[in-house]
């Protein structure tokens, strides 16, 4: 739940970015030199993406999180106590991204994702997943061949 809210807030911020991969990368970097390299490259990316994606202002100031509306977008319900708790945590993460924004990456080539050669395509040949039964078995509410969910049409 917390990670879903985190993802939501991060991608909701004006400079929308793909935090998950860079976040993990930075965390897993062991040496300090490679850490700074990653920082440079990724924050450059963040700027570029922010520019091409956002119709909002290019301000480097992040807005404080509106946890209630974020929770609504993520379709999760939070108690007022949880909202308060999340707000502090999320604000810390956002502030940290504010620091990343300050890195000068003007001379660095952007790269969106892990290094992958292009042309990584698959033949259109069907293959049935053998263990689909275990997927169905793990669905909490499964009845008569269907997933059963609350009726949501016209509910907004």
């Amino acid at each position: 739940m917390a990670s879903r809210a985190l993802l939501a807030v991060i991608s909701a911020s004006p400079n929308r970015c793909f935090i998950s991969s860079s976040w993990i990368k930075i965390q897993s970097s062991s040496s300090s030199s490679s850490l700074s390299l990653h920082l440079q490259r990724h924050s450059r990316k963040i700027q570029l993406i922010g520019r091409s994606y956002s119709s909002e202002t290019k301000s480097s100031e992040f807005q404080p999180p509106d946890v209630s509306s974020l929770a609504e977008t993520a379709r999760i319900s939070l108690t007022p106590a949880e909202v308060e708790e999340c707000e502090t945590k999320i604000r810390r993460v956002i502030d940290w991204f504010g620091q990343l924004q300050q890195v000068d990456v003007n001379s660095v080539e952007p790269s969106i994702r892990a290094e992958m050669e292009g042309g990584n395509l698959r033949e259109d040949a069907p293959e049935t997943f053998e263990n689909s039964e275990s997927i169905r078995a793990s669905i909490p509410s499964f009845e008569e061949a269907y997933l059963k969910v609350p009726k949501i049409l016209n509910k907004e």
Partner: peptide, 17 residues
């Protein structure tokens, strides 16, 4: 609104060249 979809690049797929 458009912003509510929170688009960001799919990190698991390479570019389509």
């Amino acid at each position: 609104g458009l912003a509510d979809y929170r688009y960001f690049p799919e990190p698991d797929l390479p570019e389509v060249i």
